[in-house]
Design a binder for these strands. Structure first.
Lengths: 337, 337
DNA sequence: AAAAATGCTGGAATCGTTTCCATGCACGGT
DNA sequence: ACCGTGCATGGAAACGATTCCAGCATTTTT
């Protein structure tokens, strides 16, 4: 063990060294009013003693821990990693620490994590909600400043309704993609969705109908958050419905699964099926074939959400960030399989 | 605003409701000794009042905030994301929150973050160190429980020397890879390294020499942490040295850059150059050609590091986890370009 | 039966900060 | 010369837990 003996220097030590009261030290250090002379004395003493205020005392007194909590489904997923990076980058400029929890898209784990946030008195939280809105009610009621990122909580119960949300323009992204695919002649278009992407699924159905293509419930496959589940859903879809000629996947994990499953089942992309993936990841370009994607501003979503939660003042209810279709080589004209 | 008026229920409320003293409540709730009867009363009262102890009070009293700090160079890099996931998963089983900071592999940012950890009185930290060992001395001296993951701090100054480290078996991984490449006939093997990978570079040189292949300093290219820098290094290397027939990259970002650069410069993999990448990422299999990689147990590294920092008791100084060469299709026999 | 040991219990101190409030001083207006 | 106003200042009270310690009741030992 090292110098575990020496006590941390406290505000009291500084006060003593500067010959003033603790209140004055606190005021000087947190920008309150003080005479130039006192300010100087205090600053000098603080520097001399190498004083660093402890967040512990402050937090207790303020009855809230500084920093922001961040809840994402899976930090391993490039999308959420980039989202987290955005949050971290904004928080850094405010000097606030960020505490991350991984929900695994499991409402139960989410609840546990919410409990932890409450125990820590985190009063600023950014979350990609997994559970239903009800789970968030108590938190909101206790005055925590919550911002949802990348999804809304569903169903939208009363209180959750006015939590600010930062979203990508799923609707626009889906519409562009579907228009692009129908333009290539595709009619049997499938959607590989993960739980919690009902927003995108709805947009998908709407987009199809707007183009006069009948939506078929069976062409919407659902997967859980894991890679295994994604693969199973992708493989299942391709086997069950040899008539689909295009697939839209709701995220990069599902896209990966689709490519893998197609390869395994000897379904050629884009010859046999065209593929569009939600979320542009670095490897989309390296893939064979390079994947056409709907790029998502993941980092921006995180950054904006952090701004909303950190900046006081009036907050808009919904921020929508643009999605963009990036055409590479995974889509081709419709050819019956 | 919602019910911001209602005060949080404290231990005092519970004590009153149960008709006992606060000390007793605290003991019951943290597993101290108490009579069965009192225990019951306290538990009932706590449940009735929906009491959740506040970490704030506890932390102040204990003079340390719970939870663990985690410092990684880049959360967007799949390797560190998986490492973080390991940490989070272990911490979850201890019920400890994890505060993440991104250093960008920049010693200065690392120092800032260390400062933040101290301000927060985090006394348990897992870090992928970027700066030199000196930056860590003050922290260690102040009694913080530090574990390094994935790299050592260099240079190894006195105090840092006995910080536990959890590493992948770089040496073994590099050796296997180099043996594999020489086995295919390659002699001009380049290493694309990122700053801070001196460990791997050294192992690379050793492995070559052990096989009687002269090491050539010019065949070791260095890049900074960014994708741009990685690409520049990769492209530079391939252009500068048309004689290299095999490339080993120190990480997945560099691997990505190498594939991209090769494609751009019309260098075929594996026909013109063979490629082995450190770190197996999901897309390595999707890449064209599928990449031969040295798989790294990133998640395990994080998990083990978290165990070391969370579990009290004697701690081993170094934990080395195995690397594994996974052969796919990015290497072929040597053919002069 | 007295003494010692053991086990529960609750009051009070403590952690390091912020902030309320009372005090004292200087200054300007009447 | 007096009083009100304003500002700088420091003491003390929070904040919500843990934990030391002394007090008491009970049991065990001598």
């Amino acid at each position: 063990m090292h110098g575990a003996g020496q006590r941390r220097t406290t505000i009291k030590d500084v006060a003593e060294a500067a010959g003033v009261g603790v209140a004055t030290v606190s005021r000087v250090l947190s920008g309150g009013s003080a005479s130039a002379e006192t300010r100087e004395k205090v600053l000098a003493a603080a520097a001399r003693l190498d004083y660093h205020p402890s967040a512990l005392g402050r937090n207790l007194r303020r009855r809230r821990s500084g920093g922001v909590g961040l809840l994402v489904p899976d930090i391993t997923d490039s999308f959420y990693a980039r989202l987290a990076d955005g949050v971290l980058s904004c928080a850094r400029s405010y000097g606030e620490p960020v505490t991350i929890g991984v929900t695994g898209d499991d409402p139960e784990r989410e609840s546990e994590l919410i409990g932890m946030l409450i125990e820590q008195s985190m009063d600023r939280v950014i979350a990609v909600p997994s559970g239903d809105g009800d789970a968030w009610e108590p938190v909101l009621r206790s005055g925590v400043n919550v911002v949802f990122a990348s999804r809304r909580a569903e169903p939208e119960v009363a209180d959750v309704a006015d939590v600010p949300v930062v979203l990508a323009d799923d609707r626009g992204g889906v519409r562009t993609a579907v228009e692009y695919l129908t333009g290539l002649g595709h009619r049997k278009i499938a959607f590989l969705a993960r739980r919690g992407q009902s927003q995108r699924v709805a947009a998908f159905i709407d987009a199809l109908e707007a183009l006069g293509v009948p939506a078929d419930d069976e062409l919407i496959a659902h997967a859980r958050a894991s890679r295994d589940s994604a693969y199973a859903a992708a493989a299942g879809l391709l086997q069950r419905r040899p008539d689909v000629t295009a697939v839209l996947t709701g995220g990069n994990i599902l896209g990966e699964a689709a490519v893998l499953a197609a390869r395994e089942l000897d379904v050629r992309v884009p010859r046999d099926v065209s593929l569009i993936m939600f979320d542009d990841v670095p490897w989309a370009e390296l893939c064979s074939p390079p994947l056409t994607v709907i790029a998502q501003p993941a980092q921006d979503i995180g950054y904006r959400a952090a701004e909303l939660v950190l900046r006081q003042g009036r907050r808009p209810r919904t921020v929508t960030l643009p999605s963009e279709l990036i055409v590479r080589a995974s889509c081709g004209p419709r050819r019956p399989r």
